[in-house]
């Protein structure tokens, strides 16, 4: 048996290298571009769904407070909502708390008073105030001065609430929109497409 003297030496010419490098560069550029695009798209979709979750949260917060509310007022631009809610729990500083500190955080027993409109159920001398408003890029909820950020997004969340007060009932219509990072059909169209609507009745104002 005869062995070859040596492994065959072979290589590429400069031209071949240049061609190969060019093709590789194109493929790499395409891959990077596609990857960046994919990442952007993913981020946009992720951001979209994240903001949708914030929409739902705002609506749920509002609905909870409106349901238990005694009265609702909205600002002229409809972007600030004030809900008056029963002061159900005894807070530090309340008369009951001063008389009995261990009662802090416990539910009140309601009292009844007779007004010109009939008997009224009271949980304290004055109700709590809950305010929803825009603060920069955030939506904040302020209850008795305590500020809680309930949504924060770079997608320009805009809540609008209309209060409808009838003779013996009251409800609110709320819409929340945001401006997606990726827009394709123009800003107005893309914002409209994100609208979330909700109607909440004040359980304390019923017909009949």
């Amino acid at each position: 048996m005869k062995l070859s003297a040596s492994i065959k030496q072979s290589g590429s010419t400069l031209a071949e290298l240049m061609v190969g490098l060019s093709i590789s560069s194109v493929i790499a550029a395409a891959a990077i571009t596609a990857s960046v695009g994919l990442q952007k798209s993913f981020n946009a979709v992720d951001q979209f769904f994240a903001t949708q979750m914030q929409q739902i949260r705002i609506i749920d917060y509002l609905a909870r407070d409106v349901n238990r509310g005694l009265a609702v007022t909205t600002s002229v631009d409809l972007q600030s909502v004030t809900v008056s809610v029963p002061n159900y729990l005894i807070q530090a500083g309340d008369a009951e708390a001063i008389a009995n500190p261990s009662s802090i955080g416990t539910p009140r027993t309601p009292t009844i008073s007779y007004t010109t409109t009939g008997p009224q159920v009271n949980y304290s001398a004055s109700p709590s105030s809950v305010v929803y408003q825009i603060n920069g890029m955030s939506i904040v909820r302020i209850e008795n001065g305590v500020v809680t950020t309930i949504a924060s997004s770079t997608d320009q969340l805009v809540p609008q609430t209309t209060d409808v007060e009838l003779a013996n009932t009251e409800y609110t219509n709320s819409t929340i929109t945001f401006q997606p990072v990726f827009t394709s059909g123009g800003q107005t169209a893309s914002r409209t497409g994100t609208t979330l609507c909700s109607t909440a009745y004040l359980r304390n104002k019923r017909r009949g």
Partner: peptide, 11 residues
């Protein structure tokens, strides 16, 4: 009877 008041314990 009618339901005259509604509150939620949010704790």
């Amino acid at each position: 009877y009618r339901v005259a008041s509604y509150v939620e314990d949010t704790r």
